[in-house]
């Protein structure tokens, strides 16, 4: 942005690209990345997995949420090179064959979105929430989903959708 001063840093040699191996949605993937590439940018710009969204790019909105080794994280604040060897699940990897993940179906059933931009992050975050097993009540779902902002304000339906998916074995 224009108002940002250029960082006063000494000249650093352009780093070699670093080999990064990830298992993304079940597929072994080899990448060669500059160290500053976030996992989010690796997914979107290097692998065309654009289901994961860039919202704020500062860990404040949750749109970039994916699962790394089964845990939900903000991919915008994670350097891809630090995750060498990890297993990553994005919104593209939740459905099995042509069968939607129960959360995807529940979001449709409850109309749990309007514009849809936050939805991949909401669904990946909810998948992490269900695995964690700490949320039982609607209050607990709201609290443990607070890292996912929905500017359209679809929260009541998002909570209802997650409750429906939680009730499934």
């Amino acid at each position: 942005m224009a108002r940002k001063k250029a960082a006063a840093q000494p000249t650093i040699p352009r780093p070699e690209k670093i080999a990064v191996a990830l298992i993304i949605n079940g597929v072994e993937t080899q990448l060669s990345l500059a160290p500053w590439t976030t996992l989010l940018d690796a997914l979107r710009d290097h692998l065309d997995l654009t289901g994961t969204k860039k919202g704020c790019d500062h860990g404040q909105c949750g749109a970039c949420t994916v699962l790394v080794d089964g845990r939900r994280i903000n991919s915008c604040l994670m350097l891809a090179v630090m995750q060498d060897g990890a297993t990553v699940t994005t919104i593209e990897g939740l459905a099995v064959d042509s069968r939607l993940h129960p959360l995807q179906q529940a979001f449709i059933d409850h109309d749990a979105f309007q514009c849809g931009y936050c939805t991949p992050g909401q669904i990946c975050s909810a998948a992490g929430l269900i695995t964690e097993g700490k949320a039982k009540s609607a209050d607990e779902i709201r609290e443990l989903m607070s890292g996912n902002i929905c500017r359209c304000g679809a929260y009541p339906n998002i909570v209802a959708a997650i409750q429906q998916a939680m009730e499934q074995p």
Partner: peptide, 19 residues
């Protein structure tokens, strides 16, 4: 760098500039 949640953000904001 460990979790990176604060440092990466501050690097994007040009507040921190580690080499």
């Amino acid at each position: 760098i460990a979790g990176g949640t604060n440092l990466i953000d501050l690097m994007k904001e040009h507040v921190e500039h580690p080499t």
